[in-house]
Each structure stands twice: as C-alpha cells, then as structure tokens.
Nucleic acid binder design. Structure first.
Length: 500
RNA sequence: GGGCCGGUAGCUCAGGCGGUAGAGCAUUUGCCUUUUAAGCAAAGGGUCGCGGGUUCGAGUCCCGCCCGGCUCACCA
C-alpha cells in the first residue's frame, strides 16, 4: 500500500474513534463567541493579569500546528488568515476531550471553548475546557514551513494554496477590496450597476476572437461576449446616464502571464462628458483604489515604485517621440508624416503604423501610471473623431507596469458615422483582419434614437489587481485560472475501497 | 504554435561521469503538564510524470508523449 493510501486508511479509521468518543466527524454548526481575528484584535493588548479565567470564549478554526507534550499540548487554530494558540491539558478537560485532542491531525477543523491566558512566553492562548470536532481531513496538509510551492497544485487546488499560503489569501482579499472600492466610488458619483448579456448573437465592443456556444431550443449559435460595451451604450440611449458593469469577458486567444481567456472588466459610461472628463475621473478612481487596496498611492511592483497620485499624460504621437529608443529620434512632424510612418512599420495605413510603432517601442517602458491619448481612427471603430483631426479619435488608454489597464473614449453617437465605421471594419475584415468589428445594425438602430454625448471606459480588474498586489502572473490573481484538465484523479475509487 | 526550464516519499527538496533511492517536515510507536520550525528514541513510507530505446545495469543517456512554468508570437 502506498503511503498516501496508508494515511487515508489511518484517518478513515480515526473517524470511528472520533465517533466512539461521542463526536461527529463532520459536525453541523458551532456557536462561536469570537472569530480568531476578533480575539487577536480585542485581547492582544491585554496583559496576563487583565485576562480572567471567568471570561469564556468559543473559537473555531483549522488545526495548523500541533505539539503534544504528553498530558498536555498546544495547537494553533487558523481562521480568516490568522492563528490563535490553544492549550489543552488532561486535568482541565474531560477524558474524551483529551483523547480527541491527542488524535487530532493537522488540518482538522475544531471548536474550542475556554478562557484566555498568556503562556510563559507571553503568547495569547485559549486554556481549553471543552473541545468540539467539526470536520476531518483525510489528507495531510502541505508542509508547515514552506507552504505549498507547486504552482500547478496552487492553481488546481486553490483551497490548499489558501490554507497553506497566507500571502495568496491576502491577494484575493485585496482583489475584493479593489472591486469594493471601485463600486463605492462609482456609486458615490451616481453610477448604477447593471448586468448585460454574456451570451450574445453578435459579438462586439472590442477586437478579439470569441468563444461560440449553442442554444438548443432556439437552435442558434451564441457568442460569449468579448465586451459589454454595445449593450451598456444602448442603456445610455435609454436614459441610464451613468451605468457600470463589473463582470467577465471571454476572448478566445492565447494564455500568458497577462491573459486569461475569461477575465474581469469594469466598464462604465457617463453621459454628457467626454474623454477629458474620464481622464480626470480615472485619475481619481485609481488614486483612491490604490489607497483603499494598499494604504498608499505609492505601490511597489517588481522592484519599481508606482505613483498612483496623478498619472502622466502623453498623446500617442508625443509618446513615440518621448520614449524613442536609440538613434534618429523622430520629431512630432515625423510621426505625423505618412511616409515616415511607412518606413518604420509594415502596416498599410498611417494610423495602424503609428499604433504598431507605439506598441513595439513605447508600451513596455510605461512603468509609471501613464495616460496615452489620441488614437488613430482605424483602430478605434467606436470612438468619436477629434474635430480638428478626423484621422484621430478622442481615446485614451492607461498603462502601468508596462501593461494596458484601461481603455476609454468619447463615444461615437452619430449613427451615420457609426455605419461608415462598421463598413470600414468590414473592409478591413475582407482584407484579412479576422478581428475587425462586425456590423451591428441593432446597435446602430439604438443610436438612431439619439445617444447623449458620453464617455466610456473599461478597466482590467485582473491586471489592476496584479499591480496592486505585486503579482507577476494574472493566474495569481484569478482564483481558478484556466488550465488543461489534469486527467483521472481516482479519489472516488479510493474512497469506495475504504468502505469495502 | 516555437524556444528554454521543470516533474524524485503526502509536502519542501538533494541525488558529480550510468552501479542497491536520500534528508527535513508530515505519519506510526514510546517518553514528556507553558510549547511554538518543541525535544528525545525508534519505525514505516517510492509506478523517480507516462511509454519506448541504448546498456550487463537507467532517477541519470536517447526518442516520443503528458502536465506545468518562463519567454516569443497573438492579445486586454
């Protein structure tokens, strides 16, 4: 028998002993008086003299450490990422409770009732008078010192990662705080949260390849959305002047440290403003979210200090000049010149060429939070053109740590112009651009009823979380990132074997 | 999809040029009533990712495959 099966069998047999002592191996509920963090918050400052044996507490948690010293022993209970020590001695509990304590495994979930005291070394500890058993672990826990290091196991069995690695738990707590901060800030400004279709008959609002699924009763193919944009703007037409949605988008593309096929976007739309208004709003949102998530507007990421107090601002053309590497730094006139652009890119149109040059030379250098604005019209089919320069649109993206984290623009609200833009995209599609936008007549129809001028923005929550938690990979900020299925696990057969 | 790196006990990791597979934690047994990476003594535990090949002999060398990481391409 393998060691793993021996351990399983031992613990399976231990369940009988737990039950023979009068406990349930898998309990129903536990009326705790405090959580572990509450105990630590409220009593850590108290001296030994201030703690009374008459004051009883009931706490529960998972056994993280266990040190038996014969007729007494210590364990740490872990709950909500914090640990509290318990002390059990044979003359302070009934015999069945003490026996239960002796056969505890690291990883079991228990409840402990007793009074708080300080040990000789000064650690706040529960002097246990009664134990309750709440859940048995059949497998041994990851090693106590190193935690769970195996990256694949951390992703596939995230619960083990969360149990064993407090830093990992913290990432997801901060992620939750980031989302809460954004929600709060938007609600304060009069935005309302909505939910729009994830399954769409036409996909749009971004350039990406979609996932396809099928609805049986209607017998139609549907696309998992690549963006909620066109639905949110229909709502702006409908008079929801300030709307936002925080939800998943799905893009059928490669995986990397910055891309997961499903990822979370905040998109928000504000009527009667333009991209300038959104730049100011974005700067405010980012400063506050950094503060709420990390306690500071200065955030450490991969050795750099990112300053979220006020992002820098460059036009795309300025940025190409400013961040040019090597010789022959171009002038602003150069980057306006179609000939110069053609010489430095193999894209056919000046706008696509400028974008390509920007992406290849500038993007990776944008470590400090930076707003890049004024994008070529070719790459922005849904943005409003600049009145004095119709080849460019009123659009900006926010970069930080070399990643794009937000994308915003003054929304195109002229249906006739939108029709022309879609037709331009269809032409690009016919020239081989598979990701060019589709014609969406239902959306154009909505615009025909009149959409107020508006600014709209999308913020990549996963990437923002990476930056604010100093995480190198997007998989470290997504609880269950997409992985190849691992194949046969075999646990059902092993459990069946135990019973027979 | 390409390149590079990795997969050894439940976990964390060693295994020089091919020669009986190791440590720590965890587990089991014994001792121990304020310990804390508790301690002391003993014991058990391996499909070396999977499948071929070379060899007297493969964890080690060769080929194929699986899974993962990084990176490039693509993208947000």
């Amino acid at each position: 028998m393998s060691l793993e099966d021996e351990l399983l069998k031992q613990r399976w047999e231990r369940i009988r002993e737990i039950e023979s002592l009068g406990f349930h191996a898998y309990g129903r509920k536990y009326d705790f008086t405090h959580t572990v963090p509450q105990i630590l918050n409220e009593y850590s400052a108290k001296t030994a003299e201030e703690l009374s044996p008459d004051f009883k507490v009931r706490v529960s948690g998972r056994v993280k450490t266990f040190r038996s010293k014969g007729k007494a022993g210590f364990a740490h209970l872990s709950q909500n990422g914090e640990q509290l020590q318990i002390y059990v001695r044979s003359d302070a509990v009934c015999p069945s409770d003490f026996r239960l304590f002796q056969i505890l495994d690291i990883g079991d979930v228990i409840g402990a009732e007793g009074y708080l005291f300080r040990t000789r070394t000064g650690e706040l500890t529960v002097h246990v008078e009664h134990l309750e058993f709440l859940a048995k672990t059949l497998f041994s826990m990851p090693e106590k010192w190193h935690g769970l290091e195996d990256i694949e196991m951390r992703y596939r069995q995230r619960y083990l990662d969360l149990i064993a690695n407090p830093e990992s738990r913290k990432v997801f707590v901060v992620r939750s705080r980031i989302i809460a901060s954004l929600r709060r800030q938007l609600e304060e400004r009069g935005f309302i949260e909505v939910e729009t279709p994830m399954m769409q008959p036409l996909y749009g609002g971004a350039t990406a390849r979609p996932f396809v699924t099928h609805h049986n009763t209607l017998d139609i193919d549907l696309y998992l959305r690549i963006a909620p944009e066109l639905y949110l703007k229909r709502l702006v037409v409908g008079g929801l002047d300030r709307v936002y949605e925080i939800n998943r988008n799905f893009r059928n593309e490669g995986l990397s440290t910055q891309h997961n096929p499903e990822f979370t976007m905040l998109e928000f739309y504000q009527a009667y403003t333009d991209y300038r208004g959104l730049m100011d709003l974005s700067a405010d949102l980012l400063r506050q979210v950094a503060l709420d998530a990390t306690g500071s507007t200065e955030v450490g990421y991969e050795g750099a200090k990112l300053d979220f107090s006020a992002p820098r601002r460059f036009t795309m053309r300025q940025a190409v000049v400013e961040f040019w590497k090597g010789d022959n730094r171009p002038t602003l006139d150069n980057v306006r010149d179609p000939e110069w652009l053609k010489e430095h890119s193999h894209k056919s149109s000046p706008g696509e060429a400028l974008t390509e040059i920007f992406e290849n030379t500038v993007e990776e250098q944008l470590i400090q939070p930076t707003i890049i604005y004024d994008y070529p019209v070719e790459t922005s089919p849904l943005s409003k053109a600049k009145p004095d320069d119709p080849e460019f649109v009123e659009r900006f993206e926010i970069y930080a740590a070399g990643m794009e984290i937000a994308n915003a623009y003054t929304e195109l609200n002229d249906p006739q112009e939108q029709r022309r833009r879609f037709e331009m995209q269809i032409a690009m599609h016919e020239k081989g651009d598979e990701e060019a936008h589709q014609m969406d007549e239902d959306y154009i129809r909505a615009l025909c009823y009149g959409m107020p001028p508006a600014g709209g923005e999308g913020v990549g929550i996963d990437r923002l979380t990476m930056i604010l938690t100093n995480s190198r990979s997007i998989r470290d900020v997504i609880l269950f990132p997409l992985l190849r299925p691992e194949g046969e696990i075999g646990i059902a057969g092993r459990l069946r074997a135990l019973e027979s």
